[in-house]
Design a protein around this nucleic acid. Sequence first.
DNA 1: AATGAATGAGACTTCATTCAT
DNA 2: GATGAATGAAGTCTCATTCAT
Lengths: 229, 229, 229, 229
Amino acid sequence: MAYSSHRERQRRRILDAAGRLFDECGIDRVTVADIVNAAGIRASTLYEYFSNKDDVVWAILADIMADSAARARERMETAKTALDKITALLEFMADGLTNDASTVRFMAQFDAMYAREWSPDRLLSLEAQIGTGGFAFFGDLIRDGIADGSLRADLDPDLTMHAVINAVIGAQRRLASLGKRVELEYRQPMDRLFRETVRVILLGLRSTEPSTMKRRKREQPAKRRRRSL
Amino acid sequence: MAYSSHRERQRRRILDAAGRLFDECGIDRVTVADIVNAAGIRASTLYEYFSNKDDVVWAILADIMADSAARARERMETAKTALDKITALLEFMADGLTNDASTVRFMAQFDAMYAREWSPDRLLSLEAQIGTGGFAFFGDLIRDGIADGSLRADLDPDLTMHAVINAVIGAQRRLASLGKRVELEYRQPMDRLFRETVRVILLGLRSTEPSTMKRRKREQPAKRRRRSL
Amino acid sequence: MAYSSHRERQRRRILDAAGRLFDECGIDRVTVADIVNAAGIRASTLYEYFSNKDDVVWAILADIMADSAARARERMETAKTALDKITALLEFMADGLTNDASTVRFMAQFDAMYAREWSPDRLLSLEAQIGTGGFAFFGDLIRDGIADGSLRADLDPDLTMHAVINAVIGAQRRLASLGKRVELEYRQPMDRLFRETVRVILLGLRSTEPSTMKRRKREQPAKRRRRSL
Amino acid sequence: MAYSSHRERQRRRILDAAGRLFDECGIDRVTVADIVNAAGIRASTLYEYFSNKDDVVWAILADIMADSAARARERMETAKTALDKITALLEFMADGLTNDASTVRFMAQFDAMYAREWSPDRLLSLEAQIGTGGFAFFGDLIRDGIADGSLRADLDPDLTMHAVINAVIGAQRRLASLGKRVELEYRQPMDRLFRETVRVILLGLRSTEPSTMKRRKREQPAKRRRRSL
DNA sequence: AATGAATGAGACTTCATTCAT
DNA sequence: GATGAATGAAGTCTCATTCAT
């Protein structure tokens, strides 16, 4: 146990050092030498913990994804209607941009540079292992929202939420990546920009018929197989 | 003049070769050797035309931005209301994703990896030189749309359109970057995903009061200072 | 004694694992890490049993040499004339090529790569310790064969058998090393090639005067100092 | 032409340096750093001439094979009977062992270590390009020899010569590889050992029916230099 | 204008070995 | 006796860039 805790601590040191450098300099600009210097070990030691530089990137990615999936789930827990849940999710992302810009930036780099050369299976298996259950969950959310009357009736359970999430993630990552540059160009602080994005999208999802919702709600509960996000 | 035209032709050859390679392989995976091979010249010749590799990237970026700004402007020309204009702009981007995915991918990489190390000024000066006039133009669009009744009245001219554009660009680039991966995860073709994004956003922008719009339109023409995109 | 038997067992595990790997992958492609993985121990444990990697190679070499010397001796035991003995020896080598190609390959590698950096003394002392007694034994064989009339009279006891053995070993190892490659080039299975080599050499050694032999046989027994192979 | 001669000269410098080191230290013990030091260039320059370390090995191999194929052909030219041709070929190899031991050693290492990991096709294509025409040539040699009465009638044109060549090459390379070691063990200089091998093999190939040959035999008596060893 | 040639700086990775526990 | 952990020393190869011609 003392052993495993030492190993775990060292692993974390490497991951922390690498994560910080990736944020600061960009994933591909960081060399193994940089990482080991920052972590205070020799290069050959790093290879006792990770088989690759990619392995390090991958481990950080897995950490980030697991962590943010857990926090997102937590944030949505207290919400009542589907719209509230979506709102909570998007606000969670707004907070992420404000508080963890560097993490968001890391994910942006990953999407743009690394995702292509790693097999889809690997990505999918990571997601499975984290248990986001994204696909089914998003569908249920739209179905629930239509049922409880909080969402427009003409949304497509197999499509809309995925499109929204993709857009919001894209918006978030672009802001984080461009940082000051986008603020200069658009003359607005990035979190205002992001929250406005969220507002417009929620306006687009929200039901405009305030009366009919409550009744439909009862029709569908059996169909919903809830997945956790 | 024969001289300068030769120079121009050579420059184009380099740029074309580099552009194609950047699209195919990703900016950072393309070496100077790759570019000069594709262009049929020697590496040392490249340095007669560009002072380094970044310079090449930059020139291609400028090309792409100028080109797509011009085409976007064109697409918006025939539109009447501001909402039509925005619709045209977003559809233009949807077409870009379908037809020029590799170009979009290039821009995605640029945002994620390169934008950070080039000074904001350089980016801004590039934009000025292309004449998108982004900032003011977007503001006018919202103002016009509120005036002509096609857009919701509670949008912010200094914010909404910038937020929307950022989100749509972000969505587009993420789809282009992830390609097959996102289709596998979301089980939808990427252009359906993108068009649904556009639909939701337009729903969010669109005025919900169908009567009042026409009258207000007359109040604001003086305020509009039209900029070209 | 329980202690020492444990040590012996561990030693064997290492040697077995290493031997298998050397055969499969080639001596220099096998790392200490490979060996200890295959043996189910840690690298540092290996160094409790052997002082370095060469030591392991050396020990395996000694095993192989002792083993094959013993088996060769056995095979020659029942033979009557010297020619029969030589025939038995060469057939033993043909069988070795067929059944233990990987061992032969190991020896080929050893000859080509390692033999040079180990002192001749070390090699000689290994041979002494195994008791092949090569030099004298080969001389006696020729002498016996001339005496018993099974071999040509013009062979040189101090030379011929050594030359033959060297050639046969060389042929055997080359076939084992090149494997498929030599079969492709020569369009013959390697054991046919080897057996033809043996046939030609035996034809070259065999006495062509079938009558006189038996008488001479009696003249020389005193001179022979038999060594075991 | 001045250009190409410079390039050619540099190439040779690298090849010569590498060849010498390979002989002295063994192919796999020689690093790229060693080669470039010996050649008086930087490592990156080497990669302008060869794409790999293997490429260097390969080029040396091709040189050696082409050179020795040419010289072997030359040596066999003046021979009349097939037996004379074979004798000339094997004597050529004996000379090779005496005069170019290091080259032979190089080939021995190649066979033992490298041949396996290079595709048979590559080897075959090299041979094709050099034009040894090994397979067919060896068959014809035996056929001719049976026809002209210089070789035993029971040899197999598709097999015997290939077996003989393999054995002689194997013998030659083993002697070259082991060098002093084999001389110590067998107490004979290596070229005596090799020439005895050749003698025994030729005895095994030679026709024993003195009738048909004698007539032709008279044509060449001056040429045959019998060796006692 | 074009380029042949060279290269400095550094990237990632491997691996036999040591040593404190 | 066993081993977890660390590491020094090397190894191969890449690549943007320079400069004399």
